[in-house]
Computed example of a mutant assay.
Amino acid sequence: MHSKRLVDESFLVLEPLYSEEKVAYLNNKFDNIFSKQDSARRYVDALDMYELGLMDDIFTPKLMSLIYNVIPNPVLYHCHSYEIDGLNSSPHIAKDNFLNGWHRDIDCLHNLNDNAIQHVSLFIYLTDVGNEDGAFEVCNKKFGYFPGLFQSSNFYRITGKKGHSFLFNRTAVHRASPNRNEIQRRVLKISFQSKDTIMPACDPSIKSHEKRINMLKVQQLVPKKSVLLRSLLGDKNIGDAEIKQALEEKINGESIQVLNTNAKYKIECKMNVLQEFRGYAKDLVFIKNLIIYKIFSRKTRRSL
């Protein structure tokens, strides 16, 4: 049910996954690491979280239940917290793409023949996020062999207090709106996808891949008894039977309430004719690249 709604609506608002005390605790732990960075976008990655002793605080039974409910055979793609500077008049990502920062995540190697949800991100706001605080925005513009148009789509701006939690479909068009206020916006982001989908290879020479590389390091450090977490981190030695048993033992009875409040976040966002053309053209290029990648990957596997 959650999966289908994510495909159709692009996001789902959840009951808070952490208490106010837990959010304050995480912020207190993260503060020192963030304070040592001077870039406009600062990170606490999975290895930092492990070294801070926070993996069990973050990957609670309730959160694990959510992930395995949305995608039964999940593997992590992102696991980090980040904050962005305030006093900005433009989005902090893709601001120069001629679409005011609206974009799809092109690292989602989407299977165009599969209509099920494939790439999901969980966001938990660690600061209050209002309309001027860099709120996450998403559009349910159709994606597939024949992509949709902006004019026939809905736009949403997701605001909320500390602890506000939501899922979004990573293949959906989205952006972080400008953080115009002085306070840094801080979130916890956990992305996951089906183990059956293709995952881009890590390249140590690419700076942005460092967080994924550190996440793989955590896989080697997590105790053997943490079956579900090790599986999420990509441990291929864990079988389906072991995962099933761990799910029954660790998260049996845990459930997450999905709030039917999507309409509350709807906003008006008008795209002109040129932006409509650019959006459609970008989708076609993305689709072309996915098809080429799939053909190349198939040939590579056959040659091995």
Rank of each mutant, 00 (worst) to 15 (best):
K4W: 04
K4T: 14
R5K: 15
F11K: 05
V13F: 05
V13A: 14
E15F: 07
P16E: 06
P16A: 09
P16D: 11
S19Q: 12
S19P: 10
V23E: 06
K29A: 15
N32T: 15
I33A: 07
I33C: 10
Q37M: 08
Q37S: 05
V44W: 04
D45V: 10
Y50M: 03
Y50V: 01
F59L: 15
F59M: 15
K62Q: 13
L63V: 10
I67G: 02
Y68N: 02
N69W: 05
V70C: 04
N73M: 08
C79N: 14
H80K: 12
S81K: 04
L87N: 15
S89Y: 01
D96H: 12
N97F: 13
N97C: 12
N100V: 01
G101K: 04
G101T: 08
D105Y: 00
I106S: 07
H110R: 10
N113S: 12
N113K: 14
N113P: 03
N115W: 02
I117K: 01
Q118H: 13
Q118Y: 07
L122M: 09
I124H: 00
Y125P: 04
L126R: 11
L126C: 14
V129G: 03
N131W: 08
E132A: 12
C139T: 09
F146W: 09
F150Q: 08
S152V: 06
T159E: 15
K162G: 07
H164S: 15
S165Q: 08
L167F: 06
L167S: 06
L167C: 11
V173D: 07
A176I: 05
N179D: 01
R180V: 10
I183P: 01
Q184E: 07
R185D: 02
R185S: 03
R186V: 01
V187D: 02
V187T: 10
I190K: 01
F192W: 14
F192S: 11
Q193C: 11
P200H: 11
A201H: 13
D203P: 00
D203Q: 03
E210Y: 09
K211W: 03
V218L: 02
V218F: 02
K225D: 11
S226W: 07
V227Y: 00
L233M: 03
D235V: 06
I238R: 05
D240A: 13
D240W: 04
A241K: 14
I243V: 15
K244A: 11
K250W: 02
I251W: 00
N252K: 09
G253Q: 06
E254C: 15
I256H: 04
T261E: 14
N262D: 10
K266C: 05
L274C: 00
E276F: 04
R278M: 05
Y280T: 03
D283M: 08
F286D: 12
N289V: 00
I295E: 01
R301W: 07
